[in-house]
Design a protein around this nucleic acid. Structure first.
Lengths: 272, 272
DNA sequence: CTTAAAGTTTGCAGATATCAAATGCCGCAG
DNA sequence: CTGCGGCATTTGATATCTGCAAACTTTAAG
């Protein structure tokens, strides 16, 4: 090797900092298993373009580490991830400060209420509470299984509106605004305007921008020093969320909850 | 090296199948971050007995892969784990077939109800539902954050009782029965007897064996072909769960729920 | 019984983790 | 302002590990 690239065999990763190639590969293996919802050695190795022998070694390792299990010839992600997820949740101040308030919000509104966290420009559902009128939906399965973009949900827009400008620009630059419905905002300029409004009013609306027939109202949760730590939202069918209720009543409720959570965050210290 | 061991530098792993060392290391890094609830590079490398340079490379990689995030100098496990956990949950037939029934059970009894899955001889909480009398407890945090042993919970014993003998022996051989309270069964012979009873009656009791002051009743969930896939349980303070209610009424309720879930498992196909 | 596909093991050569040490980057004390 | 100490980052060199090819075993199918 002509020593041009950094000691590493970095061909794809543009000379970024040095990394452990095997760990990248292992992460890909996990991802393939996730996408395919489990699979055989042959399937996985075909997908990865690595020899069966190699993939076999990776799977042995991942099983041994407890990330993957094998059941009648099929490899699947193990329950360990459920436990780890729970651990991360309980470590997250926003969750500890907010889940009871979100329960309350769901109860008072009768609809779905969500507590949303942000990381790397994506949103993750930290908690979901279902009010009595909220019917079981599959919609949230998808959004809970992978961190989602921020441009097409009420909570996401609420967060985006309160992120420091430089970081916001970075986030927006690094993703396309995928169109989900006819109402999805896909234009950067338009989104920026909306975000300015949201910042002024203190809440965000989602008018069937993510899912047809569903509206949502979201409000940011801010740190004492005005940093966004996440958002709260309520989601309901358009038929139950319109006019006054959509534009006045629900925003007030949601902002109230967000405020309560902010207070909890300031008062209680969740450090162990 | 005298080429005695298999190509690998396996010094600790008794010549088991070949594994990827870096992946093992990465798993250890994740574990250390989990244990310490986040930490700086210096802390982590001290703990691991690897140079800072090396650990730095690992952390770069894990951040890049989305498993770890960095926030003001502290590394933490990322929200990705929450999403992955959710994914695994939704992939699990027992969860899909059981969580509504467990909600129902919690509502009817007013207590905590749990849906438990088993993997590698450990139990994982797949779902928890809180009835109206069940007070918030911290107890479940610990048990939800790491797969637990099976000998000291009602659900665990219910599962253990219905696992094929050879596997049961293997599980019991590979773990000590850690004493949690004065009532914990720590004697293998005694445990075997109890398990025989459980198999006969169809339910398991936990009489302050895991936590002082708490009792529980658990019943196994079986496949069409009699394989255990998990268990259901109800947990309550001893003061609210005694005499008839503990020994007759609650076992019936819990078994009924377990049965309903079995029916759901048979009827519905959850393959995507 | 034959054949094919999937899974497992192994030797080898080249790629790559790991270390030590240099460098850069704070914040703190004087 | 200066120098010190801890932490984070980068780098070159080399012993080690990874990944392939290919043999071998097992399982499923015809």
């Amino acid at each position: 090797m002509t020593a041009g690239s950094p000691g590493n065999g970095a061909e794809n990763e543009r000379d970024g900092p040095r990394q452990i190639k095997s760990v990248r590969t292992a992460a890909t293996v996990i991802d393939v298993i996730k996408q395919h919802q489990g699979g055989s050695l042959a399937e996985i190795s075909r997908e990865l373009e690595l020899t069966k022998g190699t993939v076999h070694t990776y799977l042995q390792t991942l099983v041994e580490c407890g990330f993957v299990t094998r059941e009648d010839g099929e490899y699947r992600l193990s329950f360990q991830f459920i436990a780890l997820g729970e651990h991360v949740r309980n470590e997250t101040d926003l969750y500890m400060a907010g889940h009871n308030e979100v329960d309350e919000l769901a109860e008072r509104t009768g609809e779905y209420a969500h507590l949303i966290g942000e990381e790397r420009g994506r949103e993750t559902v930290l908690y979901e509470s279902r009010g009595e009128f909220a019917v079981a939906m599959d919609y949230h399965l998808r959004m809970r299984e992978t961190p989602q973009h921020l441009h097409d949900t009420a909570a996401g827009k609420a967060i985006l509106a309160h992120v420091p400008v430089d970081r916001r620009d970075e986030i927006l630059a690094n993703q396309e605004f995928e169109r989900q419905t006819a109402n999805t905002i896909t234009d950067a300029a338009e989104l920026r305007e909306t975000l300015a409004d949201i910042r002024e009013r203190g809440y965000a609306l989602n008018d069937e921008e993510e899912i047809r027939g569903m509206r949502a109202v979201g409000a940011p949760v801010l740190d004492p020093d005005e940093t966004v730590v996440g958002a709260v939202s309520v989601t309901a069918p358009t038929s139950r969320l319109k006019d006054e209720r959509f534009r006045t009543e629900m925003p007030e409720r949601v902002m109230e909850t967000a405020n309560l959570i902010e207070v909890n965050l300031e008062t209680a210290r969740f450090d162990s």
